[in-house]
Amino acid sequence: MAGTQKLTRTTLRSGLGRVRGLGSAKEGVQHWWAQRVTAIALVPLTLWFVASVILLAGADHATVSAWIARPLNTVLLIALVAATFWHAALGLQVVIEDYIHTEGTKLVVLLAVKALLALVGLAGIVAVLRVAL
């Protein structure tokens, strides 16, 4: 094609240099990869959390507080909350982008959902720290 030939003649940049930073959202595979990384992290974290909750079934406040305050549990709980809300934000983003086709509405819903998830996730981390510290 003539247009392409003209472009290669008028630039000194390589083909790779020209496509870097392009793409639908200028982020390459970052979203896809972060979704997988958080998914892999959530495999052991989820199993640990479900097993812990079963063992804590019916436990009183003192027992649960002492469990949360143990350093390993504190760290794993914060990791669980962070990975869960990050994974949820990435997942819900894709769902919203798939079903809402009006640009303005999509942006507003995306921002609102991400803000809500960030706040609820932070609330979870603060709650863990308040019990632990």
Binding site: D60, H61, A62, V64, S65, I68, L77, V81, T84, F85, A88, G91, L92, V95, L117, V120, G121, A123, G124, V126, A127, V128, R130, V131
Partner: peptide, 22 residues
């Protein structure tokens, strides 16, 4: 996935209740 995203509120409310006291 969407249901679990909403359901994480359950996890956080449990943690917040623990932080709020007996």
């Amino acid at each position: 996935g969407v249901a679990l995203a909403i359901g994480t509120g359950l996890l956080v409310s449990w943690l917040m209740a623990a932080a709020a006291g007996p």
